[in-house]
Structure formats: structure tokens, C-alpha cells
Design a protein around this nucleic acid. Structure first.
Lengths: 360, 360
DNA sequence: CTTACGATTGAGACCGGACTCACATCGGGG
DNA sequence: CCCCGATGTGAGTCCGGTCTCAATCGTAAG
């Protein structure tokens, strides 16, 4: 009945107006639900629209309202469940307020991020949520923020930018968990991360990631408080693919004065590390203790279940979206700003080290 | 220097034209790289654009080119790594061809899916990739396809639609893995899925999901070939949240004639099932055998490592995006259509059942 | 019976680009 | 020296909506 007219062009207000025998302006008013329209005309227009199965062109609408009802989300890697969950929080919240989400993956590459931000701006998104690949190269984000376009940072902060940021403070939890490891007798604690740097880690070097920097600060502080020297040589960055992670793991476990505990920087890297440990025939926690960031469901299934640092990732996504939408609506930021804290979930992968050198 | 003029309105071609002292048309030609423009004018315009830091309004551009360089992706749940990976495949591929991705989550709800498709169409996406929540209620997708808008189905097919579909054929792998379980002595094989149905499972009922239907067909066929009767009572659908999954797991394992093997329909559900098994104090595979769909990295870390059915999810995402882009470019579909096959990865979670009733 | 004011309505401008068309301009061939 | 096609250029239209503005209509007040 009504599904004819599948010619070429889409149906426009003008078509509906003609069918309803009113002016384009009246039809637009009736359809867009603004201005004054008599009941009779409204009904006639709506009926015609229905008959022609008219659908408004949101692009055209955005053109002169200036609002696209779309927000851009830029993350390093959606494949990582950490971001998967955060993205879920964002999309759920955005949808509730009538916003759509354009998702861009940067592979943690700043150049890609710069590009992504530009493209999204060109598409006139109403605002941006970015998990910055770098906490140092942030001029592009700075520009966005200064231009007044709504922007919320997620998961990591960027240099000295005053943009709203939804991230957990890593220093405290890192400090807490390191102290826990120290109290369990560990001194040789390795920290393995995918963070790309130009040179191997040395104390005090400027790190691209505020997250990692905070974590290392927290570790160092804990070591210092307990008057132990921080094992700089066990901080391993640039852990890329699974193979390089395995190599690094073997390295820190087989070196002369090996690590007795390993901290994995995220859930993805953790998989390869645990696998490498198993391949070496070592037992957790008897031979090596293990601690990881991110509390994924599978960490409860291993034997023993893994001790993790849980982060409220979904909630951060929700908060980021909410904050962004407030900005878009011209509302002031929520005060006080929401705080997110990570918690140490002690399961079974951290063991007590009796003497300094237990393993033969 | 150049970053002044952060007033209100964005810079447009008209502004650039004025600055370069040429007509709007010439400026547009120089910037859009079309038509004939003298070298001198081109340089003048480009310089002015740079100076004003002009950025084209993609919305306006889309308006009269009809192309938005954006594709819509509709999935049930991005939080599920299965879709996370597929999405990654899609975005990676889309980006290479200059397309952006608008991602919508439906929570496997058809109404939400209908809505998502409508919204994306209103936004004039160039094409759609949909993982249909239902293989039965597909009129909305049918309409999209008939309207000629590029559409590719992912992961599941939808009724009798002739739209291009990138999915693994489930019947074969289900048949193969069921035969494997049967050969290992299992007769009481449970199949647990989140698929929502109005009534409990009974043989031959019409299922909303082609995927699940195929899997059950494969199982039944295997049972039939070996002349064993298919344990209908162990097909459990409507497994919703973690708690209900646990309940179902306990149920099939504690009933009078309990299941000796459980097949989990996806990686998310698998987590809760394994957890429930562990809570019951049962060992895999000594007490219960376990098999799951989706080969996630963590399945290698459990003790024992889990036997899984691996699906080429990333590649399906890539293929879906490629196929969609071909459609958008007006090219015919690749022939032969890419085939995706799942493989049974035998690790350690399926054991041999000596006698019919080993457990006391 | 005239006037005023609010509700309706249509014409047309406008958003920011792409693109059509008519009008130069210029150089080479006849 | 004139004609013709190729190249440059500007004016103006169009895409599909929103929105301003002036005109029209109805009717209650004076």
C-alpha cells in the first residue's frame, strides 16, 4: 500500500507539503513540531508524511541547528575490554539523552588521534570524549578545548589541560598495592607495560602516559617509605605483541636476580604474561606472585584466581558521557567533580615470600 | 599568530574567498580540488585557508554530495569481546577506505535495533552493518535492503533475506563438536544460551536466532547419526544475568540424570558457567566436560585450558566492512562469497566418560 | 460596526558547501 | 585577421531542512 515510490530521491518536506496541500513552511512546522500549526493542517501533514513514509534528513537539520546530536569517542583500542566496557558506559548514557556515538580507534598512536579529532570536528560532532594516547602531545586537544567545543578526557589526563577528566588516580592504588607486595616480602617487583618509549626506562624519565607515570611514582614512594631500593631494571616498557611480552616475562624471571612478583599494566598484557609464566613451568604464587590492573571476569577462573586492581571503568564511561552532555547543554560541570578510585582485590595470586631468595 | 578569530561562527569558504579576494566559487574549487583553478588563485586561497585555519564542514559537503563517508554498525553488545573484535575489524577496514563508524548497541533488543536502523538512516549513513538481534523479525532490515541502501549482515543471518551476510555456518561445527562429545562417551549434553524465548525449549520450536537454531540442528543430527536420543531437557535458553546462568548450571548438574557435558553458547555466558561449576566443587573435565563457543585468550589460562570453538571474528568484521564498501562503491559482491568456518580447538576441558553414570 | 491582537500561513532567506552556466580571456589554426 | 576550443572566473542555484517576517484571518473588545 504505502511502500511505493522507491524511485531515487528521498522524500522531503516539500513533497509532503505538496501532498498535504500546504506550504513547505507549514509542513516543516508540523513535522518539526515547532511554531504554530492548526490542528487540521497538522493532521493533514502527518497523514501525508506517513503515507509517503517521510523521514527527515538529519544532516540538513544539523546544518542549520548547529547540533548534530552526535558525540565523538576516541579510544586506543576497543578490542581491549577495558575500553569495551567504558564505551558501553558512554553509548548507554548517550543513547538515553538522544546522542549517537562515532567511535574511532587510534591504536594508541598520537598521529592517528590528531587525525581522528580533526575528522570528528569536521563532521561537527557536538562534543568529544578522548582517551589520550599521550599525556604530553596534547596540543590538538588543547586547541579543541580552547575553541570551546565540549571535551572530556577519559581514563588518562593530558598534561596540564584543565579539561574535565574522568580517570582514577593511580598513584594511591599503586602505592597501596606495592606496599602489599612489599609486606608480602617481595623486593624484586617487575612492572610490565605496553607504553611505547624511545629508550628503556630509567628513573625520572618523562613518560608519555600520566597513568603509567603515576603508577611508577606510587611504587617508588612505597619502596622509599619501606627503605628498600626500587628495582628500576624491572620496569619494562615497550611490551608490544604477545611474543615480545613473553620474551620480557622470561627475561625478568630468568635473570640472575629475578623478579619474584610481576605487575601487569592491563588485562591484555596480563594474558601473555600469565601464559609465559605457565610455559616456564612456574607456579603462581608459589614461584612468582602476580598482580594486574583491571578486574576482568576471567581473572576469577584461573587457578589460583588472580589478585587484581579493579577500576570502575563502566562508571567512568557513564560519567564522561554525562559530563560531556552537560557541557553541550551549557551547564556548569558537576561539583564536586566525580572521583574514581581503584580497589585492590586480593585473590590468590600474590604469595608471601619467606626468605629473599627462595627459588634455587 | 594564526589562531585568532575564535569568535563564534566557524570559518567558511566565503570567509576564505573574501580573504583571498576571489569569488566563493573559485575558493571552493581550490579547496575542494575540483574544476579549473589557476595556480596563482589556488595558492592565494590555500594560504588564506591556512591563515584562517579553515576546516570544511563535512555536513554541508555531505548534503549535496549525498555521501557521508560514514557507516552505521549495529551490534547486540560491544562489551562482549566477540563483538569487540568484530568491531575492531570493521573500524580498521573502514578507516583504510576513509569511512567513519557510528556504533549503536541494541542489547539484543529488536525494538532498539529497529530504532537504531532508523536513526542511522536519518543520519544518512552510506551503509549499514547489522548483527541482527532476531532472525525472524527482520522487516526493518528487509526494507533497508529493498530500498537499495548498502547493507551487510554480520554474525547471523536474517530469515530469508538475500542481503550479503558474513557469518560462520554453525551447523557443521556444531555437528562436529557434538560428535566429538558423543565419541567421548557423553550422552547428557547440556546447551546453555542467553537467547530469549517465550517458552522453554522443545524440539522443532521456531527460534529467533538462526545461529542457535543451526547449532541445535547440528547437535540433533549428530545424536541421530549415532542413534542416541537428543536430551531436549538439557537445552536451556533464556539464561540472562550471571545469577540465572549459575542457577541453570546448578540445575543441569544436580538433576536426577545430570548433564555430563555442558556447551556454552558464548564467551560471556561461559564465564558464569565455569564459575558455577567451580562453586559446586566439581572438576573439569573429571566431573563435567565443558565446551564453549568463542576462543578468547583467557580460555588458555584456566586449569585445564578450555576446549573451544574458534570463530574468525575479526576477519568477519573485515569482510563485512569490505563487502559494504564494495556495495557503496557500486561494485558487485565478491564471488565467490567469502566463507567462514569455525574450528574445534581441543584443549583440556572435554574428558572421556567411562561408564554412563560415573559420578555417585 | 470598527479596531486590535493573537493565531495561522506562505514566501523566501539562510546554513555551507558543490556544481551549472554564461561570460571572459587567450592562443593557435586557417 | 578572424574563428574556435580550452581554460578561468563569478553569479547564482541547489541540497533539505529551520526560521524570520509580513500578510491574512478570526474574533472579542470598544
Amino acid at each position: 500500500m504505502s511502500s511505493n515510490g522507491s524511485r531515487r530521491r528521498d522524500i522531503t518536506v516539500a513533497d509532503v507539503a505538496k501532498a498535504a496541500q500546504v506550504s513547505k513552511a507549514q509542513a516543516a512546522r508540523a513535522l518539526g513540531n515547532y511554531g504554530a500549526v492548526s490542528e487540521e493542517v497538522r493532521e493533514r501533514v502527518l497523514a501525508a508524511a506517513e503515507e509517503l513514509s517521510y523521514r527527515p534528513n538529519e544532516l540538513a537539520r544539523s546544518m542549520n541547528t548547529g547540533k548534530s546530536h552526535t558525540i565523538g569517542v576516541v579510544v586506543g583500542d576497543i578490542e581491549n575490554p577495558h575500553f569495551g566496557l567504558a564505551t558501553r558506559g558512554i553509548t548507554d548514557t548517550a543513547k538515553k539523552s538522544g546522542f549517537n556515538v562515532i567511535l574511532v580507534n587510534t591504536d594508541e598512536d598520537t598521529a592517528a588521534e590528531v587525525d581522528a579529532v580533526r575528522v570528528l570536528l569536521d563532521k561537527r560532532v557536538d562534543g568529544l570524549i578522548v582517551a589520550p594516547a599521550s599525556s604530553v602531545e596534547t596540543q590538538h586537544l588543547q586547541r579543541v578545548h580552547e575553541s570551546g567545543r565540549p571535551l572530556v578526557l577519559l581514563d588518562r589526563n593530558a598534561g596540564q589541560m584543565e579539561a574535565e577528566t574522568m580517570a582514577v588516580s593511580m598513584a594511591a592504588i599503586s602505592h597501596e598495592s606495592t606496599r602489599y607486595l612489599l609486606q608480602s616480602g617481595h623486593r624484586r617487583i617487575a612492572f610490565i607495560s605496553t607504553l611505547r618509549t624511545e629508550s628503556p626506562y630509567r628513573a625520572g624519565m618523562l613518560l608519555d602516559s600520566s597513568q603509567i607515570a603515576e603508577r611508577l611514582d606510587g611504587m617508588q614512594q612505597a619502596f622509599q617509605e619501606q627503605e628498600h631500593s626500587f628495582p628500576e631494571d624491572l620496569v619494562r616498557l615497550n611490551a608490544g605483541d604477545a611474543e615480545s611480552i613473553r620474551r620480557i616475562t622470561r627475561d625478568v624471571l630468568l635473570m640472575p636476580d629475578p623478579a619474584t612478583a610481576i605487575v601487569a599494566s592491563d588485562g591484555l598484557i596480563a594474558l601473555s604474561i600469565v601464559e609465559a609464566i605457565q610455559e616456564l613451568g612456574l607456579a603462581i604464587p608459589a614461584d612468582v606472585s602476580f598482580l594486574m590492573y583491571d578486574d576482568f571476569a576471567w581473572t576469577r577462573l584461573t587457578t589460583p584466581p588472580l589478585t587484581v586492581i579493579a577500576q570502575p571503568v563502566y562508571n567512568m564511561g557513564v560519567a564522561a558521557a554525562k559530563a560531556l552532555i552537560r557541557q553541550i547543554d551549557g551547564l556548569p560541570p558537576l561539583t564536586p567533580a566525580p572521583k574514581f578510585t581503584a580497589t585492590l582485590v586480593r585473590r590468590g595470586s600474590v604469595g608471601t615470600l619467606r626468605t629473599a631468595e627462595t627459588r634455587s
